[in-house]
Simulated scan of single mutants.
Amino acid sequence: MSFAARLKKLREEHRMTQEDLANYLKITRQAVGNYEQGSRFPKDENILNALADLFNVSLDYLLGREEKIPSPSSIDYILEAGNTYEDDKYTALKQLLSSVDDLPVDIIQKLNEIINFFRTYK
């Protein structure tokens, strides 16, 4: 899938209009439309980084170098490598993650943000 197709798909999954995305990126709606049509590509790496951050995907996925988007509810996605958790914490997180699998992506991403927020206050 091309960058243009992925961008449009991600924007629609997040229930954003081209105008919403343009305002977020501080560019014109026409520029977003051109990106989605494949007639233009962002020249500014800040735009690419902002898109990856907004949609919570890797640049490799956004640029088509990775075919699979990591599941926001997968244990590896939420638990950073190198962290060690007691068995009871790990089990609790696995139960939490399995219970949110059917939620919309934007809700799962909000939950991930909350987890990351509390992770900073160990």
Rank of each mutant, 00 (worst) to 15 (best):
F3V: 04
K9D: 12
K9A: 10
L10E: 06
R11M: 01
E12S: 15
H14D: 14
R15G: 06
R15H: 13
M16Q: 09
Q18P: 04
Q18L: 04
A22T: 00
A22K: 00
Y24W: 09
Y24G: 00
L25E: 02
L25N: 02
T28K: 01
Q30P: 05
A31F: 06
A31C: 05
Y35G: 03
Y35S: 01
R40Q: 11
P42V: 03
K43M: 06
D44Q: 02
D44F: 00
E45P: 06
I47F: 02
A50W: 00
L51C: 01
L54E: 00
F55K: 02
F55I: 02
F55H: 01
N56I: 09
S58T: 09
Y61T: 03
L62D: 07
L63T: 02
R65F: 15
E67G: 07
P70C: 04
P70Q: 12
S74I: 04
S74T: 03
S74A: 11
I75K: 12
I75R: 14
I75L: 14
D76W: 04
D76P: 13
D76F: 06
D76M: 13
Y77P: 09
G82R: 03
G82C: 04
Y85A: 09
E86S: 13
D87T: 14
K89C: 13
Y90L: 15
Y90G: 04
Y90W: 07
Y90T: 08
A92Y: 07
K94H: 12
K94Q: 08
Q95C: 08
L96N: 07
L97I: 05
S98Q: 11
S98G: 06
S98H: 08
S98L: 11
S98N: 13
S99G: 02
V100K: 06
D102S: 14
D102E: 12
D106E: 14
D106N: 11
I107W: 09
I107H: 08
I107D: 14
Q109F: 09
Q109T: 12
K110V: 10
L111N: 12
L111A: 13
E113K: 15
N116G: 15
F118H: 10
Y121K: 14
K122G: 08
